[in-house]
Design a protein around this nucleic acid. Structure first.
Length: 274
DNA sequence: GCGCAGGTAATCT
DNA sequence: AGATTACCTGCG
């Protein structure tokens, strides 16, 4: 699967449960392999990662430079989730239960373009269906990396697709949305990197100018692609949590810059606990 | 066969 | 402003 001599081991002291992260609905290119390995594809990189027997130690298939320069940030390792959990405890019994259940979750720092397209595709799809569609367009239009793996397609690569090809990739009625977004970005009409300079409200407005992007998808892109930790995407599960578990009162507002991270624990609790 | 799912846009009051 | 409905596709 991978050459052991290329691997290094790294220490992660803070919360880190790769299984929970992979099931948390924020990333769709992280898959469990054999023997406890997880494979992550992000930008043009493939990472294999596995827990060692030693506590807090992980074996990873990259150089120290790639770990420090890319994956460390991808896994948001400069942020202390244990401190966030402690700071947010005691305000809501339901949130407390969610935090306890989801200990080990982190919010990944992912590519804005990939998040934009992925969450346009996500509407009215289950998590496995989203993953299938993302793999389809990566295989059909993305750059080949190795062993049949493909990078997520660039704006230019997706802009060269036809609507019927995107429908073949199981995008359905979202195909024209994705094509339109790809053309806007590839042409330079929208500069996704420049959006990083906007404040939260301006970013939300800019993202919602894409056809097929409403408030929920915009908040997902904002949270997962632009690191806006106060963004709270409200989907049916979060709406259900507010309605049925919090007596209709939104519990997220009180967590300020950590609201989006708390949302992640609640979403995981709603979708993964019995 | 048929209803429904991790939203959005268009089209109504 | 708020409510209703169609939309692809996969799954029970």
């Amino acid at each position: 699967m991978n050459t052991a001599s290329e691997n290094i081991t790294v220490t992660i002291q803070d919360d880190f449960d790769i299984k929970k992260i992979s099931e948390s609905g924020q990333c769709f290119r992280m898959t469990e392999q054999e023997d406890g390995w997880y494979r992550v594809i992000a930008r043009d990189d493939v990472l294999l990662i596995r827990k060692c027997d030693d506590p807090n130690r992980y074996e990873v298939s990259c150089s120290p430079q790639d770990w420090d320069g890319h994956w460390h940030d991808y896994f948001d390792l400069d942020r202390s989730y244990s401190e966030i959990r402690e700071a947010c405890e005691g305000k809501s019994d339901f949130v407390d239960a969610s935090i306890a259940f989801g200990k080990g979750l982190r919010v990944l720092n992912q590519d804005p373009w990939e998040m934009l397209i992925t969450f346009i595709i996500s509407q009215r799809k289950s998590m496995p269906a989203i993953a299938t569609a993302v793999e389809n367009i990566s295989r059909m239009f993305g750059t080949h990396l190795s062993d049949g793996m493909h990078a997520f397609p660039t704006p230019e690569q997706l802009a060269s697709a036809s609507e019927s090809q995107l429908r073949e990739a199981s995008l359905g009625y979202r195909a024209p949305y994705v094509l339109d977004a790809a053309r806007r970005v590839a042409s330079g009409y929208v500069d996704l990197e420049a959006l990083a300079k906007l404040d939260d409200d301006e970013l939300q407005e800019a993202l919602m100018s894409f056809v097929g992007v409403g408030p929920k998808v915009a908040n997902c892109v904002s949270l997962f692609g632009y690191g806006r930790s106060s963004s709270v995407p409200i989907d049916v599960w979060i709406a259900r949590a507010i309605d049925e578990e919090c007596n209709g009162t939104n519990p997220f507002d009180q967590f300020g810059e950590d609201a989006g991270i708390i949302q992640q624990y609640v979403f995981f609790y709603m979708t993964r606990s019995k």
